[in-house]
Amino acid sequence: MTMITDGLAENGRAQGAAAPARPAVSRSAVSSGEVRDYFALLKPRVMSLVVFTALVGMVVAKGHIHPVIGFASLLAIAVGAGASGCLNMWWDADIDAVMTRTARRPIPAGRVTGEEALAFGLTLAVGSVLFLELVANWVAAGLLAFTIFFYVVVYSMWLKRATPQNIVIGGAAGAFPPMIGEAAVTGSVSVDTLVLFAIIFIWTPPHFWALALVKSGDYARAGVPMLPNVAGPDATRLQILIYTLLLVPVGIAPAFLGIGGVAYALVSALTGLGMIGFAWRVFRLREGDPAMKAAQRLFAFSILYLFLLFAVLLAEHAFGLGAAFRGGLA
């Protein structure tokens, strides 16, 4: 569920410091982890983006949900996302330990054991799915369960270490939350949230590959076959450009399907042009520091791009800002 990366800094702690050696034997039967370590296992930044996109799925849904049920459903989706992040950290602890971006995570840093993370993640995964079934419906709960399965088993355990297309296919896991949100409201899934799914799905490769260009050394050390390490940086730059060119029209599509209004059309077009501009710079600048900076800027802008698209949809639907205009382009 958490294909959206949580940025270059983890847990708000100092980067670059060497991870302390993992104790061979626990000196006590009691966990040594702090509460914030368990919270960090949930990948809170990713969780917040999942909640945000699920909320948008809820507000674009053609139906009504009691605010308490809506809040409880969002909480279940958030905990499910956190559970999948936790299980991902449990499975990937070995490669997290050799990557500077992830070496300070609780498991490689030795603050939480793998067994503790596994138990914590499984408990939250089962609990979140059952809770969503209780408060909403089995369609939403089934989608949440499938999303956790897809992220942990299909992406983390299988694709991530097997193919450079890992984040292309695995990106589906991060794209499901709007559909889960709609299912919590209506008990089904419509074209509206399928389009939102498509936006996140196509957005994931340029977003992730921009990061992979910057951190290719990390991924190489960890033995993760990211596209820059397998096909080379230039092929990756071309793929980023192609996916960005595909993304922009899909990003504008909600304006023509009656999901977004005029404000959405304007924002999606302008930020889409921005995405193409940043992707073009990544494609053109191939050497040295300018190339790294171009990739970093695309990575940062891609987060802003997705946030703005969903924020405008949220504003138009939840606060009625686009009610007067919505449907005008459809």
């Binding site: 000196r27 006590s28 039967a29 009691v30 966990s31 040594s32 702090e34 509460v35």
Partner: peptide, 16 residues
């Protein structure tokens, strides 16, 4: 045999 908990570990357990 377990080493006794340090004050820091007791504090963390209480927080958890």
């Amino acid at each position: 045999e377990r080493a006794p908990l340090t004050p820091e570990e007791v504090k963390r357990r209480r927080a958890r």
